[in-house]
């Protein structure tokens, strides 16, 4: 079993990158929810979720991003998704998530997509 892990790190521009790994399903979704909740409580409004090591995502896992997106966007922030494996992307794509979220091939591109604070 690929253990689910999620690590948060903040760069100098104030962008939080959450690295996901393993299986994201109904059981691990609550874990991700509390991690994201903690990041937002700490002031993170610009979040990039790195899917590079995520093997699987279920419908419950997708729901987690829906919980926060509205409030973050109303605060002027965003959640951007990056580096999905084709299988994971298919799930997002089938659901129509690309309409809702910006999805980038790499974490770097996702970070670059945030406007600089000075600007």
């Amino acid at each position: 079993m690929n253990q689910f892990t999620a690590l948060t790190q903040q760069d100098e521009r104030g962008i939080c990158c959450i690295d996901l790994a393993g299986y994201l399903d109904a059981h691990t979704a609550t874990e991700l929810e509390s991690i994201m909740s903690a990041a937002i409580t700490n002031g993170c409004r610009r979040i990039v979720v790195n899917f590079a090591d995520l093997e699987y995502i279920s419908s419950a896992g997708l729901g987690v991003f829906m919980v926060f997106i509205e409030s973050i966007r109303s605060d002027g922030g965003d959640i951007k998704l990056a580096a999905m494996k084709p299988k994971v992307f298919t799930v997002f794509d089938l659901l129509g998530f690309p309409v809702l979220f910006e999805i980038y091939p790499t974490v770097e591109e996702a970070k670059q997509a945030f406007p600089s604070l000075e600007a």
Partner: peptide
């Protein structure tokens, strides 16, 4: 609007 945020229906 009447559904929980993390819930959706396909």
């Amino acid at each position: 609007g009447s559904m929980e945020k993390q819930t959706y229906i396909t």
